[in-house]
Design a protein around this nucleic acid. Sequence first.
DNA 1: TCCCAGGCCGTCG
DNA 2: CGACGGCATGGG
Length: 285
Amino acid sequence: MPRITLTPDQPFSLDLSLSCGQVFSWEKEGGVWTGVVGSRVIRITQRGDSLSFSGADPGFIRHYFGLDDDLPDILSSIDRDPIIHAAIERNRGLRIIRQPPWECLASYICATYANIPGIKRRIFLLRQNLGDPVPGRRDGVYSFPSPHTLAGAEPCVLSGCRLGYRSAYLAKTARLIAGDPAWEERVHRLPYREAQKELLRFSGVGKKVADCVLLFAFGKWEAFPVDTWIQRIITTCYPDAGPLKTYDQISAFCRSHFGPWAGYAQEYLYCHRTTLARPCGDLSP
DNA sequence: TCCCAGGCCGTCG
DNA sequence: CGACGGCATGGG
């Protein structure tokens, strides 16, 4: 079984990274995480500084989990106030995962105005109803459906995935992308703001979804997704920022406050949301 | 039964 | 631009 030994100067927590709500298709059973990334079934476990895994080579694992990002450097650069400091102390080792772009985009279209268990359920149904079974010992493991498959899906099959009003958005975007295979390379090449504009062309994609995809799939670290949790945290815990009202005001304040790795700060705040969002921003543990 | 959830779209000032 | 209602569905 392939293995990666982590060095002490580059902390990593598999549990935090997979359970903080950035990915929706990983499951942990008996200490082992299982997920489908593209067409690979990856099984991985962490014991201390050792990662043991199957289904992918070490280079893929390093890239997918961001193990080559200099986390201590990133964290010290965003550690600019007591609020984020507490979030860092509590969640050190959380890394932003590099998701396949289409899976990430489609998942976050399905994630609007829903809670995480509901999102996981819908994406599970999408895989089960429209994905391809992935060869392996265990059945019940399916790849994420391709844009082409989703674009041609029977309406009754798609409605069985319980997406509600998101269903039409996803189908429309799947059709657009099935006829535009260069979208991924285009977004990669563009700087943050123009890449965001490019994603906003897709149906069901507003600024929040676009920023999630830019952060979680394209490594645009300036992206700072503002959802209801982050909005609450910023307005209650950062009153000195002034009366921030619009998405762009909050997002821009956080980019200037946290710097070029603002997206990492967002994820640490989000991971710490239930503590930070309670009344008065109480920092007690 | 309520309220809320990793919001977006269309419409109207 | 900014504000606002509607929206399918499921969790707590």
